[in-house]
Design a protein around this nucleic acid. Structure first.
Length: 482
RNA sequence: GGCGCUAUCGUCUAGAGGCCUAGGACACAGCCCUCUCAAGGCUGGUACACGGGUUCGAAUCCCGUUAGCGCUACCA
């Protein structure tokens, strides 16, 4: 197979955790690369030395890996390419497309504040800070600090965005921006363009918050004499209040969802559907299908609200279709975190019977824990209500069940046999099956919701089940069976 | 304020001029199934922001208004 010339990249800055918005951008890039047989490059943009940390880089890498997003090249670290960035800036300077600016941040800040206070639009004026050649030489010799600014051309800066269509800006609306700090390090816009050129990136897919950077970058591509990549700006992800998703909306880091027991496949599916649609009614789709169906045209132009409830629903779908074998490790991890004694027990049967009623691995692990360890039983509100409502019938149901179950030996302690025993007992005593089943369910789990009671009994085991029923019976008022 | 983007149910979306009295999914309500729940099935309510065009015909094309969001740093 010949290599596709398509090259995309995901370029997070390690100044925080892997945000779901970033994860989705990464996913789209990955999907596109896999779809086209292209190359997915991972680049860590750590030019902001103040805020970048190795720990954040690690978390981002782990988050991507957990999500199953694999990169073909990298991770490259932007910070390592300082010399090339500087060389590009110098070249622009030599070509007269950029210039030294001696204005100090303080002076600029002061002017900005004045303008803002007066309710005016602040603009950096090239002429306002320009110095004569002689003055420049003098300051240079004196060692005055300066930055290099790019002289934004007074021309239309437009492109055909793969998701928005044509977008155009006027160069005159854009201030001459800094490309090289006074310490000689590159500012984002230069670093990105320099790197994307060097890495031969053909498609730049990133968040909508970058569209206002794009005209600057296009001007830079042109000044550097490099061909333009295709730009695709994917919409933002919003919180339920319609504002850009952030910490105050709760869980926004991919790791948060991992901790909550969301499955990577479900997260992938959910994220892919946020701002992208395969068309038609497709909803729960495998990653292979996503790759097959993915297209830039299918990306929505408007921002999408992150709906955690739907994520959980989707996770539930995946949970019920995931084998107990595959769920074993994550459930064990949650149980260990919760401090539940596993005692070398095989959890698979427990997982299988509980997973249908779980939306997250966390919920699943809680159910398993209750079945494993009687001390984890918590009688919930509905169960308490049922107890009150049934009154003496509750104890009667328990006693009846106990009577029916005690003769069943551990060898025949199977769902079928247990159902038969309970049904027969209920019929003989003229009791509704539910009036025996529900009390048993509550005695075994403390809640009114579970798998069918006969299965529950089987999974909890004979001795433990009988013990729980007896314990519950001893707490109820009227233990006399009818 | 300036510049830019966006505008279909509460939310995610289908829809690329007639197939739309607008479809699906989540959520919600009810029913069926049933020992409970989940799943599944069925039913219901809720949307083309507004105003002008273009057209025989507009959710779909154009313009304007309004609203929301983003950017506006020697952050990325």
């Amino acid at each position: 197979m010949t290599a596709s010339p398509i090259r995309v990249r995901f370029a997070p800055s390690p100044t925080g955790y892997l945000h779901v918005g970033g994860a989705r951008t990464a996913l789209f890039n990955w999907l596109y690369a896999r779809k086209t047989g292209g190359t997915f490059v991972l680049r860590i943009e750590d030019t902001d030395k103040e805020r970048s940390t190795d720990a954040h880089t690690q978390v981002i890498l782990e988050g991507l890996t957990w999500l199953g997003i694999t990169w073909d090249e990298g991770p490259f670290f932007q910070g390592a390419d300082g010399p090339r960035h500087r060389a590009d800036a110098e070249r622009l300077l030599a070509d007269g497309l950029a210039y030294r600016c001696f204005a100090t941040p303080e002076a600029l800040d002061a002017e900005r504040r004045v303008a803002v206070a007066a309710g005016q639009t602040y603009r950096y004026e090239r002429a306002r800070w320009a110095v004569s050649a002689a003055e420049e030489a003098r300051r240079l010799a004196a060692g005055d600090p300066f930055v290099i600014r790019f002289a934004v051309p007074d021309a239309e800066l437009a492109w055909q965005d793969a998701v928005h269509g044509r977008i155009s800006f006027q160069g005159r609306d854009i201030d001459d921006f800094v490309i090289l700090r006074s310490d000689g390090s590159a500012i984002y816009n230069l670093a990105v363009v320099s790197d994307d050129i060097a890495m031969r990136i053909t498609h730049v897919m990133r968040g909508d918050d970058h569209v206002s950077n794009t005209p600057k970058q296009i001007a830079l591509y042109q000044a550097l004499g490099a061909p333009l990549p295709v730009f695709a700006h994917v919409p933002m992800i919003l919180g339920s209040d319609g504002k850009k998703l952030s910490k105050r909306h709760g869980a926004t880091a991919v790791g948060d969802y991992q901790d909550q027991g969301i499955l990577p496949a479900a997260m992938r599916n959910f994220l892919a559907l946020l701002g992208w649609s395969p068309g038609g009614d497709r909803e729960v789709i495998t990653s292979d299908e996503m790759i097959e169906l993915f297209s830039l045209e299918g990306i929505q132009g408007k921002p999408a609200v992150f709906d955690a409830v739907k994520l959980e629903w989707m996770n539930g779908q995946y949970l019920s279709h995931t084998s107990a074998d595959d769920l074993l490790a994550p459930v064990q991890r949650q149980l260990q975190l919760a401090g539940v004694e596993l005692g070398g027990r095989d959890l698979r049967a427990l997982i299988d019977s509980a997973k249908a009623r779980s939306r997250t691995v966390l919920q699943l692990a809680e159910q398993v824990a209750v079945r494993l360890d009687a001390s984890r039983i918590v009688v919930d509100e509905k169960a308490a209500k049922l107890l009150t409502k049934m009154g003496p019938a509750f104890g009667a149901g328990l006693a009846l069940a106990l009577q029916a179950l005690e003769p069943v030996g551990s060898a025949e302690w199977t769902p079928d046999r247990l159902f038969e025993a309970l049904k027969q007992a209920a019929e003989t005593h003229g009791v509704k099956l539910g009036d025996a089943m529900q009390p048993v369910r509550v005695a075994l789990t403390g809640v009114t919701v579970s798998e069918p009671v006969n299965e529950l009994l089987a999974v909890v085991g004979r001795d433990e089940s009988l013990a729980r029923i007896r314990a519950s019976l001893s707490r109820t008022a009227d233990p006399t069976p009818s």
